[in-house]
């Protein structure tokens, strides 16, 4: 296990080096979040009665989304991993005494985590001091705060587990870029990164909440804002865990198959 930890550490530190990128990221995400809120405000002004949550809740939701963007960004794919799959260099990786699935998983986690560490604090801090109703609020109770943190971590690993599946499909396709663009845009939309899931039509929303898409950013952010609470919150976290287990199980199975195929073909 030690080697995996030190691997995580190296990647994490590596990610911290990008100082200017982090500043710029904070500025970008802040402006982005602000624009989204202004857009929703325009809709809210016209017909507040059909708004699926209070505007205050939405503000917290959007700021959390911007602050933790790097955890849930579906478009991030590691270049080294991608190119090693495409050009067949993956064969060399197999020579090392490591679990490739676990290593890739950690690599993805480390990069995302390091980006969030640099970016989330300034975004959240400024968002707390914005005027009403655009400001970020505290969670309703300490318990909900704790549940949020738990669910943030599980949601994060569900997303990474899902993106691992996308990596693995690269073994089987001749058009990695195309598949990636397709998968990313679908994932973005269905996880609520473009508009939050509560704004979806009821029928579609129900389906998405059962599927892994609802178990990524949707669950933690709704717990924080208090839209999900009590037993509902616990149920959602339970569902997240189920999806995590299922997705990693699938991922490991497919990976095994894909690698076997790669070796047979000689890379």
């Amino acid at each position: 296990m030690k080697k995996y930890l030190s691997f995580f550490r190296i990647r994490f530190i590596y990610g911290l080096q990008y100082r200017a990128a982090a500043y710029a990221g904070v500025a970008t995400q802040f402006a982005w979040g602000g624009m989204i809120l202004l857009m929703f405000a325009a809709f809210y002004k016209n017909s507040a009665n059909v708004f699926p949550m209070t505007f205050k809740e939405l503000s917290s939701y959007i700021w959390l989304q911007q602050a933790f963007l790097a955890l849930f960004m579906s478009w991030y794919f590691d270049n080294d991993i991608m190119s090693s799959i495409v050009n067949g260099n993956i064969a060399y990786e197999l020579c090392r005494p490591i679990d490739l699935y676990l290593m890739w998983f950690l690599k993805n986690m480390a990069v995302r985590a390091s980006r969030v560490v640099l970016r989330c604090a300034p975004i959240l801090l400024v968002a707390f001091f914005l005027p009403e109703p655009f400001k970020m609020s505290l969670p309703n109770s300490l318990l909900e705060g704790a549940l949020f943190l738990l669910s943030l971590v599980t949601g994060f690993i569900v997303l990474v587990a899902f993106s691992m599946l996308i990596y693995i499909t690269m073994f089987y396709t001749i058009s990695p870029v195309g598949i990636r663009v397709l998968a990313v845009s679908t994932l973005e939309f269905l996880t609520g990164a473009i508009i939050p899931l509560p704004f979806f039509p009821e029928g579609l929303k129900k389906v998405l909440l059962i599927l892994p898409f609802g178990s990524m950013q949707n669950t933690p952010f709704l717990i924080y804002t208090g839209v999900l609470s009590g037993s509902e919150a616990l149920q959602s976290i339970f569902l997240q865990v189920i999806w995590f287990l299922l997705l990693t199980f699938l991922g490991k199975r497919f990976m095994k198959h894909a690698l076997a195929k790669t070796i047979v073909q000689g890379g």
């Binding site: 001749i174 058009s175 990695p176 870029v177 195309g178 598949i179 990636r180 663009v181 397709l182 845009s185 679908t186």
Partner: peptide
């Protein structure tokens, strides 16, 4: 193939 897949992706 790659070209058309990417184009389709962009469309989506």
């Amino acid at each position: 193939t790659s070209f058309f897949m990417t184009t389709l992706g962009q469309f989506l």
